[in-house]
């Protein structure tokens, strides 16, 4: 028994010394000294977990590999389980390049001064959400949703929550009171259509691109689920880059942007996972409308 206590104390001492001794290499690996250009620093990319995690790690892993080849940086994909966690990580500089939705992008841009939306898919300039329902209900338009159970995607999602909520409001439907029970937040677009297909919820709203991919790949049974409303267009997904030049050296941002924009046929496999054939240029100003809607809904103060 005495031995146990002694071991404990010994071990603690050992640990304390270990921590003390580890100061230097730790600093190096963390790269706290901002001015020195550190080639060992890993360029970390992230994505909002808006769909199937396995799929995301395929597409993002592909991007990481591609960027590593193109830019010579060590690129790594860091999965995230939560939209807000990704925004926080981005704010803290732990994520250098992120695939954000409109709302998370706006949140990130307001938290990090130098964050910049650099690229997006052509379809993101004119993005839509779709409202889906179980086919047997036979819903015809947005008004028919009243009295049915309903799920959004993640509460931080633009196409899964913000814009669907906005268009519900525009059509005079109070999401909190006019549906069957309070609306649910499923967490991701994939989960939304799966939950509707499984019958857990009667209706749901999700990202148009995810829906089209699901239909094309047959992961959703269109005999059971159908689209009954499509929202007007808005700006959505984009690649937002952090203030990377001080960490990785001048010109890193442009290098990354160039690499993303020059993805083409050779990278079609990766692009397919994003349901696009190329990335185009975008800018922070494109998201002013999203910000306005978020403010109107009280999501951004």
């Amino acid at each position: 028994m005495r031995k146990l206590l002694t071991y404990f104390t010994f071990l603690l001492l050992l640990l304390l010394t270990a921590c003390g001794g580890g100061e230097e290499p730790a600093n190096e690996s963390q790269g706290e000294e901002n001015n020195t250009k550190n080639t060992e620093e890993v360029f970390k990319i992230g994505a909002i977990p808006d769909q199937n995690a396995a799929e995301l790690s395929r597409s993002m892993g592909g991007v990481a590999e591609y960027l590593q080849e193109e830019t010579g940086l060590t690129v790594e994909y860091v999965p995230s389980v939560d939209y807000a966690a990704l925004v926080t990580a981005f704010e803290r500089g732990e994520i250098h390049l992120a695939w954000f939705g409109g709302l998370t992008g706006v949140q990130a841009m307001s938290l990090v001064e130098d964050a910049e939306a650099i690229a997006q898919r052509p379809r993101d300039e004119e993005f839509h959400s779709v409202f889906i329902a179980q086919k047997e209900l036979g819903l015809k338009g947005i008004e028919d949703i009243k009295g049915h159970s309903f799920t959004f995607g993640s509460e931080s999602s633009t196409s899964g929550h913000l814009m669907p909520r906005y268009f519900l409001m525009e059509n005079g439907i109070d999401a909190e009171n006019d549906l069957d029970g309070a609306p649910n937040y499923s967490g991701s677009h994939d989960k939304t259509y799966k939950l509707v297909e499984a019958g857990t919820f009667q209706t749901g709203a999700l990202n148009e691109a995810v829906w089209e991919t699901a239909v094309a790949e047959g992961t959703v049974d269109t005999n059971k689920v159908e689209v009954f409303y499509e929202t007007p267009a808005y700006y959505d997904y984009n690649w937002t880059i952090n203030a990377v030049d001080p960490v990785f050296g001048e010109g890193t941002k442009d290098k990354v942007k160039e690499a993303l924009l020059s993805m083409g046929e050779e990278q079609q496999e990766i692009l397919d996972l994003f349901a696009t054939d190329k990335f185009i240029e975008t800018s922070n100003e494109n998201y002013a409308a999203i910000e306005k809607v978020a403010k109107e809904l009280g999501i951004i103060k």
Partner: peptide, 15 residues
């Protein structure tokens, strides 16, 4: 400490 490469002291950085 070694695999996760989490430094204890780095936690108390300026940032």
């Amino acid at each position: 400490y070694f695999v996760d490469k989490a430094s204890f002291l780095a936690l108390f950085s300026q940032e």
